[in-house]
Design a protein around this nucleic acid. Sequence first.
DNA 1: TTGACAAACGGATCACTGATCCGTATATGT
DNA 2: ACATATACGGATCAGTGATCCGTTTGTCAA
Lengths: 192, 192
Amino acid sequence: MRADAKKNYSHLLAVAHDVVAKHGVDASMRDIARRADVGLATLLRHFPTREALFEALLCTNLDELTQKADELEKSNSPDEALVSWFHEWMRFTQSYRGVVALMAAAHTNPDSALYASCAAVHSASARLLLRAQAEGTARTDMNGDDLFGLMAALGWLVDLPSFAPRADHLVHIVTSAILPNRSSSGVKKATR
Amino acid sequence: MRADAKKNYSHLLAVAHDVVAKHGVDASMRDIARRADVGLATLLRHFPTREALFEALLCTNLDELTQKADELEKSNSPDEALVSWFHEWMRFTQSYRGVVALMAAAHTNPDSALYASCAAVHSASARLLLRAQAEGTARTDMNGDDLFGLMAALGWLVDLPSFAPRADHLVHIVTSAILPNRSSSGVKKATR
DNA sequence: TTGACAAACGGATCACTGATCCGTATATGT
DNA sequence: ACATATACGGATCAGTGATCCGTTTGTCAA
């Protein structure tokens, strides 16, 4: 890649990160290009679609996330690992408003730039669930798709500002369904 | 209202119903107007926003839905009523692909045409939950907002074709969290 | 029945979106 | 220093919803 191209590439990523933090994933591509002092065509050449941009934008964070799943699998009880994983996921989704909808739409479309990222999260989730089903107290009448779905659904919900404050509580409710016999040790007092 | 205006109004509603059934709530307003053999301005005069159109489109179905809540409250056990209500809601959302996102966005915005509809669903849910908490086995560490949130989240998820087949199962999982001690009588065998 | 007027209509236009084309500028390596 | 492949970005296109405004039409009174 030519030097100027590489400079634009990383500059665009940085600008996109800021813009998205302020205005969510629906920010217009023109806006991002403008703020980066770059032509729209340049932005679209580096990132042909909105999803491609977010794939590049999220990849480091997603690597961290899935790596976290590995750590949880090694050093925590199956139940604790699953719950922590759910919380990690929520924390991730909340840092990029709107990204869940993008991922949910991409997760069955192999052509999407986000497909691989979705698959990574999906498989990490399925792994942790299987382990909790085998060694822990996770209900056995659900599979990785169900877990991924519930994670996506709550992630989407919490994108709405009015539900963000109750994120942890909603996760608590849903995880209590996944792990019906789990002790509630360490669970915060309910906020009614 | 003038006779021709009234004719256009109901004709537009009928056409919109068909178009939305085929293409979801994101169908372009121009498309709907075109299929109704009407100018775009005419559609937008009758329904200034997309939400206004859906408010009119859904109002009868929503009345049915909230009325169903009343019936459930009278003739079913608190637990059964809550579960049936959740299923009714899912059935409703699945008949208008994309409407959940619209309602979720509107539910804190009093200016939205869908605000009243959201509030109706919200209050019906809260009522059924309170009753299940008082007389039934619903967990007491959640409120109407939480229930509405979970309903919205699952409704949104099931809009995605890949998750639609597991709708009932996901509802089963979530309601089992809301009603932790409920007997599982009548519950279909788990499909793993 | 006729006429006047308010009401509804819809084509035209605007600002905006992402996608694409192509002439221009420049970084690169010989 | 030059030649060329590469990247750039202005211009343009089809699409969106919103709005304006001249034209048509339904309605009610004379």
